[in-house]
């Protein structure tokens, strides 16, 4: 079993990171015109909802939110011991021509984001795609980077970063675990 090594963010830390990212998204895109948020299942989905909430508080305007399931786009399906469950993709607005901010909890190798880009582009042709993550833990295997980062954390490959969110895990914190 993996054992807890350190806590990276507490509830307040997560809240402040998301607030800052919300401000950065608005600033970079000069408002919310044409903006949409798409969370990557599972933990990107509640994070996208929360960012949309922050943006609404700041700008007074609602931003559409979608959810992307990338299972069918993964490049490692044939090597996984357990077949992942396919869940629904729910992007209830046309993505073509929009600025879409993909949202995920952790960026690591970049392969999830590669899959998400494929999945998103199959739904239409966004004008711009940006990426927001709560944690960037390094070790990229693809030429992909995040536009908005909550916290950069140097990690070793023997460690795992676990983002625990109220909506899914019933607690609110980010921890780093030591794998055996």
């Amino acid at each position: 079993m993996a054992k807890l090594k350190a806590q990276l963010l507490d509830q307040e830390g997560i809240r402040r990171s998301l607030t800052r990212i919300a401000h950065e998204i608005i600033e970079r895109n000069k408002g919310t015109d044409n903006l949409a948020l798409v969370g990557i299942r599972r933990r990107g989905a509640p994070l996208a909802e929360r960012l949309a909430g922050r943006i609404r508080e700041i700008e007074g305007r609602a931003v559409p939110v979608g959810i992307l399931d990338i299972t069918l786009y993964r490049d490692d399906l044939t090597t996984l011991a357990h077949q992942p469950l396919v869940r629904s993709t729910d992007v209830p607005f046309p993505v073509s021509g929009r600025t879409v901010v993909l949202v995920d909890d952790v960026i690591y190798t970049g392969r999830t984001i590669r899959a998400a880009l494929g999945a998103l582009i199959d739904l239409g042709r966004p004008q711009v795609i940006q990426l927001a993550v709560l944690i960037d833990r390094g070790h990229r295997e693809l030429p992909i980077r995040a536009d908005y980062v909550g916290k950069n954390v140097p990690t070793s490959r023997k460690e795992a970063v676990s983002v625990r969110l109220q909506e899914i895990d019933g607690e609110e914190r980010v921890v780093i675990m030591e794998l055996d």
Partner: peptide, 12 residues
């Protein structure tokens, strides 16, 4: 949901 899309194809 995939069948309802304009591009009915995933690479799985």
């Amino acid at each position: 949901e995939i069948i309802a899309r304009k591009i009915k194809k995933v690479p799985t």
